[in-house]
Design a protein around this nucleic acid. Sequence first.
RNA 1: GCGCCUGUAGCUCAGUUGGAUAGAGCAACGGACUUCUAAUCCGUAGGUCAGAGGUUCGAAUCCUCUCUGGCGCGCCA
Length: 560
Amino acid sequence: MKELVRELVRKSLEQAYAKGELASGQFPAVVVETPAHAEHGDFASNVAMQLAKLEKKSPRVVAEILVQHLAAADTFDKVEIAGPGFINFYLKGALWRQALGEIDRVGAEYGKSRIGNGEKVQVEFVSANPTGPLHIGHGRGAAIGDSLCRLLDATGWDVSREFYYNDAGQQIANLARSVQARCLGIEPDDPSWPADGYQGEYIKDLARCYLAGETADAGDQHVTAARDAHDLEAIRHFAVAYLRREQDQDLEAFDVRFDVYYLESSLYADGRVAEVVKRLMDNGHTYEQDGALWLRTTAFGDDKDRVMRKADGSYTYFVPDIAYHLTKWERGFIRVINEQGADHHSTITRVRAGLQALDLGIPQGWPEYVLHQMVTVMRGGEEVKISKRAGSYVTLRDLIDEVGRDATRFFFVMRKPDSQLVFDIDLAKQQTLDNPVYYVQYAHARICSIFENAREKGLVPANLASVPLDRLETTEEMLLIKALASFPEVVEGSALNFEPHRITNYLQELAGLFHSFYNKNRVVTEEPALTAARLFLLKCVAQTVRNGLAMLGIAAPERM
RNA sequence: GCGCCUGUAGCUCAGUUGGAUAGAGCAACGGACUUCUAAUCCGUAGGUCAGAGGUUCGAAUCCUCUCUGGCGCGCCA
């Protein structure tokens, strides 16, 4: 719809220029937007103001010229010049109503587009270390990352979801020692408790399962516990598989799935880490100092150089990180998006610097990042402190169990990733009007209930051809139709900007418009034509709500 | 100290990429069910967009500085 107006303005510019009424011949990109106030029309353009300087004419004069050349009598009810030089467009109602036919025709596809052109894009998200259960921060990452994937998929990208397991390195050694300590009956306050050990209760459970000889199945790993408290390697192996299984189960409960699980350990096993180190050295970007091998990341925008290989001979985490991202490049992902917590933002510069130092023609800004800020959990008006070490924190599983999957997902994506999120458990649990997710779902359920009522009266939704759409003319109906028509644009903006919260905002607005409509207008009336038209409108509203919720991985219940 | 993010109504937050009179929800107050779900709706009140400069026809939005809060600055990941 907006594109239609844009095109007409563009033509009008060309006309005016052809007739010599515009001198410059330089046209700015035509901006058409939806004004904040309805009295400024359905759409407005500021081209006249942008052109005024070039043309050395007042904006209103330029606007006059453009309006004269606007060949669109059958498109607009009214076109007027307002304020400093805006051109306001009032579309014919019939044109708006046509959008309903489109929604009905494409159904579940409504809102989707092809702007991604089938290009491959990889989204890496969650990527939690297998050292403990998923906590609330991972939850936000999972919800945002998964919604992002759904949005990119909806806009025509070929999406691959990836989870990177840091199953090697220092912290896994800490994990193994912590479990071993528990196996030996050592408590965290004991002097022989390992430094930097993980103190959580789950370590105790893990130790018990290990000693009991249980089997942990995760992905293609099937590890049976060796039961020997002195076999640190066996403990490590079991602990990683055990915690991975726990995480997989949590993610499944959250309805988040991945296409690829990539193991850090495999980068060592297949020699990729060694290869990367060699290449970086051959390229002359490294040097030795204090017994360690350094990468000159300052040559690529970092504020200090980074150690690659420690004095003890092992690699720091960011070497496998570079090797890992190199595999993404080699796997043909021109676009890669990493969704992470903002506390890891310093890795961005490092990973990009490392990739640049490989001299393989990888673009400077590759990969892209979406960082989400920290989550604060409130319960009973008080902040719940999160401390992994002490083992006291709210897990993702706790949340799903307590407030439900749908509310959890909605709450996690309803703020833009850039802002910190206050997760109010009490609010999310409330099944009342305060809770935005119920507000939206209720709109859907309510429409379904109206259909139920209509069916009981023998009314079935009619075909578009036989529905007198021109009977839809009240303010509430027109507002609903216009909101429905803007959905594809919202989806596009949401996907292109990596901002799923635009969808939650849109859905709350749409639900609000529906509830207003419902309270003022009766759907099932004595008048068959009007009833048919309104049922058709609501069919489109329900479809759009369903489509929007689907992009967030949230259910649209028919009954509540 | 340096880097990233943030600051909008009492609270939680939007704000269509620079547009016209800054919007929702909650909380407060006042209304609406013999009617398809009142888990809803309607109305009232609430603002120096952290502050100061700058850019221009036009700034919550862009630039500079100051201040607030969060995160990060390891031979941890």
